[in-house]
């Protein structure tokens, strides 16, 4: 077990996992917020598009999306996100992780929007705020606070789902695990180290989000 730690760059692989997680978290938050706004908008077409996004993406396996990105979009369609092979893989993995988890972020936010009483929106409109201003100033800030716990679960799922990047050659923790298994044969040690790494990443996330959801809860 010790020799795995000394011979392989375990820390480096987890730094890579963290990079995927942070970038895809930002990406999925941005896309997910847009989709959530579409789903609560008064315009029917936008609502339809939002629903379509969530239904399609949420019901497609992440592995499939990942493979589609490299085989379909990068190699067949020729959409390279970088000249460099590894950077291209990395960027496509981040994009697919973002796109996939955005569907879950959107649903978490929409449930958050549902925790905001209609009176809040009516009051916002009655002082002359436009739809966009009501969302930005009144609805979304409260929706985010009501959605912190499910958003935390999504972030934890995202952290672990970065391992799927391995199928297109991502060099994160799961990629390292398959390298170790290939070179050394499978061992409890290797699995334990990688599993422990994920616990170290996700446990604090869970605790932090529970704490945040209590601290930032909107008192009514």
């Amino acid at each position: 077990m010790i020799d795995i730690l000394t011979e392989y760059n375990v820390l480096g692989a987890f730094v890579e996992t963290l990079k995927y997680t942070v970038l895809a978290a930002i990406g999925s938050l941005v896309i997910g917020t847009l989709v959530a706004v579409m789903r609560v908008s008064p315009i029917g077409v936008l609502r339809g598009l939002g629903t379509f996004y969530v239904t399609t993406i949420r019901n497609t396996p992440l592995t499939l999306l990942m493979v589609l990105s490299i085989l379909g979009l990068a190699f067949i369609v020729g959409l390279q996100l970088s000249e460099d092979f590894n950077a291209n893989t990395f960027r496509w993995a981040v994009v697919m992780l973002s796109v996939y988890h955005a569907a879950f972020v959107a649903e978490a936010l929409r449930s958050g929007v549902n925790t905001v009483p209609t009176g809040q929106a009516e009051a916002a409109r009655s002082i002359g705020l436009t739809f966009g201003q009501s969302l930005r100033e009144v609805i979304l800030p409260q929706a985010f606070r009501g959605a912190i716990a499910p958003l935390g679960s999504t972030l934890i799922a995202l952290t672990k789902n970065t391992t799927v990047a391995q199928v297109i050659g991502g060099s994160e923790a799961a990629g390292l695990l398959s390298t170790i298994v290939e070179n050394e044969g499978s061992s409890y040690g290797a699995f334990l180290i990688i599993a422990l790494g994920f616990v170290i990443l996700t446990l604090p996330t869970g605790i932090a989000f529970t704490h945040l959801s209590e601290r930032l809860a909107v008192r009514r």
């Binding site: 009483p117 809040q120 009516e122 009051a123 009655s126 100033e137 009144v138 606070r145």
Partner: peptide
């Protein structure tokens, strides 16, 4: 230009 006061106050909770 039209003020509105509601039964349930509806102050912005956050």
């Amino acid at each position: 230009d039209v003020g509105m006061v509601f039964q349930s106050f509806n102050l912005f909770a956050h």
